[in-house]
Design a protein around this nucleic acid. Structure first.
Lengths: 140, 140
DNA sequence: TTATTTGATACCAATTTAGTATCAGTTAAT
DNA sequence: ATTAACTGATACTAAATTGGTATCAAATAA
C-alpha cells in the first residue's frame, strides 16, 4: 500500500525547492533538474498547483514559478487531496447485507475515525516544517 | 486517495461472515450472496487467506471455509499487507539532490513516523472488535 | 527578432484493480 | 456408482490509475 504517489511526492519536492528560493521565480527546468523530476510531468503538476493557488507563475524568458502561500499553510493533506483525491478509507464498507441499514451502520464510525487520524497526521506536516527540518539536517 | 481496495474490503466482510458462523463451514457461494461479493473474486481472496493461515477449507459437497485464527488476532493491518502490500508512504522521497546523503536523510523520519501511526491505528481494528461492534449495533 | 519560458492539451505505456471463466479434483448423499 | 455441490488452481480480460512524453501556441526579456 503506497500512501503517496509520484504526483504528490514530486509536488512536495517542487514546493520545497520553491520555498527555499522564496521571493524569486524558479523555472520548471531548474526545478526538474535540481530535484530529478521528469520535466513534462513536473509542468503538469505546477499547472495544477497554480489552479489551487499554491503557487504563481510568470510567463516568458526569465519566467518561472514562485510560492504564493505561506509554506506553513501548505500541508501534505492538501497535496494528497489535490493529486490523489480526498482521503477515504472505503466507499461504504458495511452494506445493507451486514448491518441492515446504512444510516445506523456503526462500523463505519471505526473507519471514519481512522480516516481522521490519517488526515490529521498529514496535516501536521507542512512545507514550512519540512524545509526547516531539511535546513537543520544540512547544517549538521 | 482510497485506503482500502475492494480486495481488503471484501476480505474483511468475508471474515466477519465466517467469524459470525464460527465452528461450522460456510461455502464461498453463501458468503458471496450474503455479503454481495462477486463469487469468483471472493474465491481468490479466500484462497489467499488460506495461504496466510487465516482460514481453513473443506473440499467437496457441504464443504466451505472456517476461521482458523482467533478473530481478535486478525487485524486490518494484516489484511492490508496481504492484499495491498506493506504500508509504505513513499520509496525514498528525499534523494541525494535534496539531502545529499540518503543515510542521514532526516525528513524521511517524519514520513516513517506517520507510516507507524497509520499502521498502529489499523492494528487496533480486529475482526473480533468489528464483529462485536456489529452485534451491538444489531441489538439496538 | 530570437531564445526562453509558461499555458494548454493530447497522447501513450505500464501497472494495478476489479471481475470472469474454465476445468480438474474432492466429498456427501442418494 | 453416480451425481450435485463444493474447493484448488489458473488463465484471461476490461477498466482505471499512474507515470511519463510530445507538441504547439502565446508571452516576455534581452
Amino acid at each position: 500500500m503506497k500512501v503517496l504517489t509520484k504526483n504528490t511526492d514530486y509536488a512536495i519536492r517542487a514546493l520545497l525547492a520553491l520555498a527555499a528560493e522564496k521571493g524569486s521565480y524558479l523555472s520548471a527546468k531548474a526545478i526538474a533538474s535540481g530535484q530529478d523530476i521528469p520535466y513534462q510531468f513536473l509542468r503538469r503538476l505546477l499547472q495544477e498547483m497554480i489552479r489551487h493557488n499554491l503557487i504563481v507563475s510568470k510567463e516568458g524568458a526569465r519566467g518561472g514559478f514562485m510560492l504564493e502561500k505561506d509554506p506553513d499553510a501548505i500541508t501534505v493533506t492538501q497535496l494528497i487531496e489535490i493529486f490523489q483525491g480526498k482521503v477515504q478509507v472505503s466507499e461504504c464498507m458495511f452494506r445493507k447485507q451486514i448491518c441492515g441499514n446504512r444510516s445506523r451502520c456503526v462500523l463505519r464510525h471505526e473507519i471514519m475515525r481512522i480516516e481522521q487520524v490519517v488526515q490529521s497526521e498529514f496535516e501536521k506536516v507542512t512545507i514550512g516544517k519540512l524545509l526547516r527540518d531539511l535546513e537543520a539536517a544540512n547544517r549538521k
